[in-house]
Amino acid sequence: MAELKLPDLGDNVTSAVVVGVLIKEGDTIAAGQPVLELETDKAVMEAPASEGGTVSKVLVKPGDEVKSGQVIAVLGDAASNAEKQEAKKEPERKEEKAAPTPAPATVPSAPAAAPRPPVPPAPAGQRRLIPAAPSVRRLAREMGINLLEVVGSGPAYRISEN
């Protein structure tokens, strides 16, 4: 078992708020892979893993304040995690029939208002970065607004307070 600690955040930055956790228990990560999305007073940044392994336990959640050197996750070796997962499986697996796929839901058309520009989709397997200043992110959190549901009106769909 190894502890994954938050690396140094930079000059004069002692702590940050966790905006997003990019890993979950059971994930296999590599050294340098982003594991947290952090927000300081001046920027939003991703924190990389200092070493690789299989995540046994995540110790932080969005909204937590973290400091440099704090343990953010516990890593275990992949062999021990695979053995634990095999032990949990049923001795005999029954063949399961695939559930029928539901028909796609139809969405009623919107009233004839000003058309909104389409949100560019995220590349397959990646999260979409939201172009917004840290102050706007904080305001949205305080107001309970999910920025993934907002289309920015600024250049490159940037979200602002106005």
Rank of each mutant, 00 (worst) to 15 (best):
A132I: 01
L9A: 06
I130Y: 07
A2P: 09
R158N: 08
S15R: 02
G20Y: 13
K84C: 03
T101A: 08
T54L: 13
R141I: 05
A156C: 03
R127D: 14
R128H: 15
N146K: 13
L9K: 09
V18Y: 06
V150H: 14
N81H: 10
V151F: 10
R116P: 02
I72W: 01
E92Q: 14
V74A: 03
V21I: 02
G53V: 11
A103L: 15
L147K: 02
L9C: 13
R138V: 04
V35E: 09
V35W: 01
E46F: 07
G144E: 07
D8G: 12
T28C: 09
P91S: 06
E46S: 12
S80G: 09
V74N: 07
R137N: 06
L139M: 14
M45A: 09
P123V: 01
M1K: 11
L59Y: 07
G63C: 07
Q85F: 00
T101I: 07
P123S: 01
D11Y: 13
N146A: 11
D8S: 11
P91L: 00
A82L: 07
G144T: 11
G144M: 09
V66T: 06
L129E: 15
R128N: 14
D41M: 02
G26I: 00
R127F: 13
G53Y: 08
I159E: 04
V151G: 03
V35M: 09
R93W: 12
L9Y: 03
D64R: 06
P102K: 02
I29C: 10
V151Q: 13
P134T: 04
Y157V: 05
V19P: 05
R127A: 11
A124P: 10
V60T: 11
K97Y: 00
V21R: 15
V151N: 12
V150M: 15
P120Q: 14
P121R: 00
D27I: 07
V17F: 09
P115Q: 08
V71E: 02
V17I: 15
G154Y: 03
T40R: 04
R128M: 14
A112W: 02
A78W: 00
K61I: 02
V136S: 04
V150D: 11
A156G: 05
G32H: 05
P104A: 05
D41F: 04
A105V: 10
V119Q: 15
P155M: 01
G10K: 08
P104I: 02
E65M: 11
G152E: 03
V58C: 08
E86G: 06
